[in-house]
Design a protein around this nucleic acid. Sequence first.
DNA 1: GGTTGACGTGTCAATATCCACATGTTGGAA
DNA 2: TTCCAACATGTGGATATTGACACGTCAACC
Lengths: 192, 192
Amino acid sequence: MYDADMSLPHALLGLLIVRPRSGYELTKEFESHIGRHAWAAGHTSIYPELNRMAENGLVEVTHEGARGSRTYAATEAGRAELRRWMFDRDRSRKVRNEEVLRMFLISALDPDDAVAYLRGIAEESAEKAAELAKLLAATGPIVQGDPEKFGLLAAEYGRRQYEAVHGWAEWAITQITGQAAEESRSSRATAS
Amino acid sequence: MYDADMSLPHALLGLLIVRPRSGYELTKEFESHIGRHAWAAGHTSIYPELNRMAENGLVEVTHEGARGSRTYAATEAGRAELRRWMFDRDRSRKVRNEEVLRMFLISALDPDDAVAYLRGIAEESAEKAAELAKLLAATGPIVQGDPEKFGLLAAEYGRRQYEAVHGWAEWAITQITGQAAEESRSSRATAS
DNA sequence: GGTTGACGTGTCAATATCCACATGTTGGAA
DNA sequence: TTCCAACATGTGGATATTGACACGTCAACC
């Protein structure tokens, strides 16, 4: 019924399983965590998709609130579909990440530019990692049966990613400026 | 002239700056490293895009070989455009990564499924990290002025990413099974 | 009482991308 | 010498996604 690799409906399904939400709330979610790290989508994709999913019985409207808002929840069929998708073996793993693309293309810059770029990355990733570390410290550990706190898995994932990027950027800088560092080290050695 | 956030042309530009290539070679590149980690594209996007870029003067055909193959190289304008794009401040950072999306949605699985999924991730990421480590060990360190070896930056990036994912998955497993581990630990303590 | 800003959902045209199909070449193995 | 696989580029229709535009609601502030 649903193509094996349609990501947006599954992203919505996942969020609705954790907690029923309105299209508007889902849009907000995509503007922050998920949208910045995993899968971007605007409200113009989300609303039509919700309608389609409702037609297909993956979600249902459980509540209609003020300003014409509709709260959606995942149906049993929706839960089953998400599970199927998560464990689908021959998934296609489409990747499209501008940030990572830029890292791949650093080689195309001349060394000075490359180092400048890497310094920017190092700084930014350290900031982001610290930000998430603070967030994680503020909320306690994950408790079983608390689906809200479960979302911290993603935050910790992000924190570790940023730390890895930070380490890499610093390493890359020493690689590229290696020769220069070598020289200054030996001159220091001579001086002492 | 070019929109600030068109990624495919910039990806092609970056590859052609490192080394002139044919559309076919570019397609191959997208099937392996770049395509799997940064930006996916098939030959049906690549060939038309190359033609468009040639019209716009970002690349030029430097050689026509057998079977109608054309080798493209970046022009001076192309180099400038890539540099502009790399350092563009208000870039849009579109993200679309099914793998990461799945990690965000682990919270939507029930604990047993989540742990099973995480075990799969842990295993897979360890394998990938080892694979890249082997590759990196086989080739020497980055040498200044050798644009080919420069590409190792990306490999090291990948290795560190996979290691981070591995560490995270193991941590996540202990978080979710935490209570169970706690219980079995205390029951062991009682038994002894 | 009016204005502003967040809430909340939607359409439509333009663009980007994917999939299936199409076509011819070259080298090597059976 | 025939066949197959990799080489090499392309078109066209279907689908997905983005950006501009549109519309109405509600609460708070001035």
